[in-house]
Amino acid sequence: MIRRKGLTSVELAKLAGVSSATISRAFSNDPRIKPETRERVLALAAEHGFRPNAMARSLNNSRSRLVALVVNTVANPAEAEGLDLLIHRLQERELMPLLLCCANHEDRGHLMRIASTYQVDHVVLYSDAVSVDDALDIFRSATLIVASSEPLEGRALFDVRLDATAATAQIVDHLVGQGRRHFVYLSGRASSHIDKQRMRWFADALARHGMAFEIVEHGDYSYESGYKEAALLLRRLRPDVLVCANDLMAIGAKDAAALLGLKVADDVAIVGHDGVSLSNWDSHSITTILPPAGIVSDALAQFISLTPASEPQQRVVDCMVRWGRSTGEFPRH
């Protein structure tokens, strides 16, 4: 079977009786083209099998419309749910995501160098397994947007980060008000900037009550590590509160407590982070700290929509508490 050669944009323009610029506008939802003209161009394109060449168009205007999303892993519900929202925001703007999962990749630098050859316009750094310096060095022609909570150390970059100071204090005040005095922390990876920040928020809130974490155990953000570390800890200690680095670990800790015959909330309160949908299931009902729905994705998408010449901006998102049964009675206020 001989493959028929497709129509070029110049030939389509002649066929439609319009300019090449009009053809380009018809396929990019440019408001400068009349709706009836767009419909006629698209109808002719469909009839003759024309498809615009996005790569060629990017060479002409020096914009690829590609956005590299550098994440740890989409196996983590917190990252997957946040990415789902952001990807929808990008697609609404006719931007295409290029997803890089770095957590278990042996050579993250090589992975990012491959992605950089696609001339991406923007890079959103979610992963705390990749440093800001490495991302800047590899994606030199792209605009970097940081969402990993790594300290910027005076560098002027687009940055979206969370502040859970008030939400953390709200939880600590509530639990201390219940008479709880023995707090333990189950951390995520030692290299995680956001995990260190989360532990610091709790440490500061506890210090205002003259208290501190009695012990810190280390996990890796997985359900399995939350289950294992909580089971080992609860066999030798009886803390009042178990604060976990994320919701998956909190769910694992809840199951470990049940295995040992402990009643969650009555014998030990459990707190998570991220606000993943799973933690809100009635079978789990974990009290967790999270940003308001869609706020982070909207902020990232807004930064991406700015012109290349825009000055870097910073956005701080205040977190909130979603109360679950894992900490007993809900606050009355």
Rank of each mutant, 00 (worst) to 15 (best):
K254C: 05
A231G: 06
G328T: 02
D195L: 06
L111D: 02
T168L: 04
Q313E: 11
D84S: 13
V271M: 07
E106D: 14
L278G: 03
A205P: 13
W323T: 06
P308K: 09
A253D: 02
L125S: 02
S310L: 06
I171R: 03
G261S: 06
W201E: 14
P97N: 09
C319H: 11
D121T: 01
D266H: 12
P77H: 09
L260E: 08
I87Q: 08
V120Q: 00
H284I: 00
F158Q: 02
N60C: 10
R38A: 11
S285R: 00
A265N: 11
A231I: 05
E79H: 06
S116D: 12
N280P: 00
S297T: 09
I304Y: 02
I251P: 04
E81Y: 09
G6I: 09
M249E: 12
V216T: 15
T22E: 04
L278F: 11
S141L: 11
I2R: 13
L59A: 03
F202G: 14
E224I: 12
E106A: 14
G188T: 08
L306R: 14
N280H: 13
V317A: 04
V321K: 04
Q178F: 08
A147P: 01
T327C: 15
A203Y: 03
V241R: 03
H333D: 14
L262K: 09
G294R: 13
D134G: 04
A115M: 03
Q197D: 09
R4W: 02
L69K: 00
L234D: 07
S222N: 09
H273K: 06
W281A: 00
E79I: 15
A205E: 09
D282R: 00
R189S: 10
L98K: 00
S141W: 05
P239C: 10
R65G: 07
L300V: 11
I295G: 03
R38W: 08
V176Y: 12
V216M: 09
Y221F: 15
P308H: 05
A135P: 06
C319Q: 14
A45E: 09
P35E: 10
M112I: 02
A212E: 12
L290F: 11
L248E: 14
R161M: 11
D134A: 11
V67N: 00
H284F: 05
D240E: 01
D107Y: 00
V70G: 00
L42W: 06
L83T: 04
Q178V: 02
D137Q: 14
V184G: 07
S285P: 00
Q197E: 14
A75R: 14
F50H: 07
V74C: 08
R63E: 11
D128I: 01
V241K: 04
G226E: 02
Y185G: 04
S131C: 10
V241N: 05
I33T: 13
A129Y: 14
L157M: 08
K5I: 14
V172Y: 02
V216A: 12
G188D: 06
A253V: 01
S148D: 12
L300Y: 01
F183D: 07
S326L: 03
L111P: 01
P97R: 03
S191E: 14
I304D: 05
M199K: 15
E11A: 15
L90M: 10
H110C: 10
H48E: 10
S24E: 05
C101K: 05
